[in-house]
Structures are given as C-alpha cells and as structure tokens.
Amino acid sequence: MFFYSEAQVASSREQIAIAVKAAPPEKQAAAKVYGYNQQGEMVLMRAGSNEMICVADDPAKEGFQVVCYHRDLEPFMNRGNELRKEGKRPDEIFAIREKEAKAGTLKMPANPTTLHVLYGGNDVKYNTETDEVENARLRYVVYIPFATAESTGLPIRPLVPGGPWIMDPGTHRAHIMISPDYN
C-alpha cells in the first residue's frame, strides 16, 4: 500500500486500476483509459469497448482526482486539454469553448451526460494488493449544455448538504452538481 501522492508516476496497470474506480462498477472493465507517461504527457493506456472514458490522476497536480465520463463529452474534454497545452487560463478556456459551442464548431452532448469524479487530498491511499482506493470521495457532474434553473427546476446552489444544484446555468458548461455529504 502506498500514499498515492508518494508515487511519481504509477505503473500503467496501477493507473488503469485506479482510474476506473470513478466509473460505475459494471462499466470499469470495458472503459477506455488515459494515463500519464514518465514525461507527464497524457497517453492512451487502454482502448475501451463501452461508452466510458477514464483519466488517471495527474501526478503533477496536488491532491488526487480521477474522472470517468461518457464518450459524448470527449470533444469538450479534448478541446479543454488542447487549450491548456496552449497555455490558456481557465477563464480563457471557458470563453473559447462557449463561443465554439454556440457556433456549433464544438460538439456538445445532445442529452444529459455524466462525469464521475473520484477525488481527495494527499491522504488518499492505493492498496496495491486489492486495487482499492481509500480516503477518496465520489462526486457526480451531469452536463446539460445551456440548461438553466428555470428549465430544470434546480437551485443555483445546494439547498441541503450534498443536494443537487445547477452550476454555470445558461452556458455550454451548464451541469448538475451532486456531491454526496460524507459526514
């Protein structure tokens, strides 16, 4: 067992085992997985055969986060990665993708589409014997581009701990946040 943050770059097998933990259990074995090579570049670790795409934890970033998302979000995610590589700031990335989504040059999902996020701090542990991730939490993000509080009936902030709410309403990045209360 090791504290995840202690590893420079986990092996391909470990990155795959850890990344798919964000996906629903029945989707993990057939998910496409991206991870990181020794140079810190995102690379394809495993081709998938279902609709899920998972991304391993970036060893260059503080804390722990792996994500799995529906393939319909791939153009949105890829565009964000391209813009980050160009050195764009988060506000610039948002503005560029917003403009492209409105122009139809950035294909956004036609239906509600989920991103699963398994995250935690530097206390996240990975058990190499069981492939289990400890001290991490799950959050769900359901993208519904251009949805609003009025079109969904959702509030613009959680009304109870862990309650669903809509973030970035009315934009290409509108999404329902569901962060279970683990206390």
Rank of each mutant, 00 (worst) to 15 (best):
Y4A: 08
A7R: 07
R13A: 13
E14H: 13
A22I: 03
A23G: 10
P24M: 13
P25I: 07
K27L: 13
K27E: 11
K27I: 00
Q28G: 08
A29V: 06
G35K: 04
G40A: 08
E41Q: 15
V43W: 10
R46T: 04
R46Q: 15
R46F: 06
S49K: 14
C54D: 06
C54L: 09
C54V: 05
D57Y: 07
D58N: 14
E62Y: 06
Q65C: 10
V66E: 04
V67T: 10
Y69H: 06
R71V: 10
R71D: 08
R71W: 10
E74G: 02
E74D: 13
P75V: 03
P75E: 07
R79Y: 01
N81E: 02
E82H: 09
L83K: 15
R84D: 12
R84E: 14
E86G: 03
K88R: 15
R89K: 15
D91Q: 11
D91Y: 05
E92D: 13
E92L: 07
K102C: 12
K107P: 02
P109C: 13
A110Y: 06
T114C: 06
L115A: 12
L115N: 10
V117F: 00
V117G: 01
G120W: 03
N122K: 13
N127M: 12
N127F: 12
E129R: 15
E129L: 14
E132W: 04
E132Q: 15
E132S: 09
E134I: 04
L138Y: 01
L138A: 05
Y140M: 07
V141P: 05
Y143L: 07
E150S: 10
G153N: 02
L154G: 02
I156T: 12
P158C: 04
G163K: 02
P169S: 12
H172C: 12
A174E: 01
H175R: 15
I176P: 03
I176N: 03
I176H: 04
I176V: 15
I178F: 00
S179I: 08
N183A: 11
